[in-house]
Amino acid sequence: MSDQFYRKPLTLGAVFKGTDLAHVDAGKSISNHIQLIIFTRYGENRQNPEFGCEIWDLDFELIVSENLWEERFRKSLLRSISSHEHRIEEIEVEVKITEVENIFPLRKITEIKKKVDITIRALIKATGEKYYFNSSLFLSPLTT
Rank of each mutant, 00 (worst) to 15 (best):
M1C: 05
S2Y: 03
S2P: 10
D3M: 08
Q4I: 02
T11W: 00
T11A: 03
A14H: 13
A14W: 08
F16D: 09
F16E: 08
K17I: 01
K17E: 09
G18Q: 02
L21T: 00
V24P: 02
A26Q: 11
G27K: 14
S29T: 01
S31M: 06
N32Y: 02
N32R: 00
H33S: 12
H33T: 10
H33W: 12
H33E: 10
Y42S: 07
E44W: 12
E44A: 15
E44D: 15
R46T: 10
N48D: 13
P49W: 03
E50S: 13
E50G: 08
F51G: 08
F51A: 13
C53M: 04
C53D: 09
I55M: 11
D57G: 11
F60Y: 14
E61D: 12
I63A: 14
I63S: 10
L68N: 13
E70Y: 06
E70K: 08
E71M: 10
F73E: 04
R74Y: 07
K75S: 14
L78Q: 14
I81D: 02
S82K: 15
S82F: 02
S82H: 06
H84L: 02
E85K: 10
R87T: 14
I88Y: 03
E89Y: 10
E89G: 10
E89W: 05
I91M: 09
V93G: 11
E94K: 05
K96L: 13
E99I: 04
E99S: 10
E99D: 13
E101I: 15
N102F: 08
I103Q: 11
I103G: 01
I109Q: 15
T110Y: 06
E111M: 07
I112P: 04
I112F: 12
K113F: 00
K113N: 02
K114D: 09
V116I: 15
T119E: 12
I120R: 01
I124S: 00
E129D: 06
K130F: 10
Y131N: 01
Y131P: 00
F133C: 06
S135E: 14
F138D: 04
F138T: 03
L139P: 03
P141M: 07
P141C: 03
T144F: 15
T144H: 15
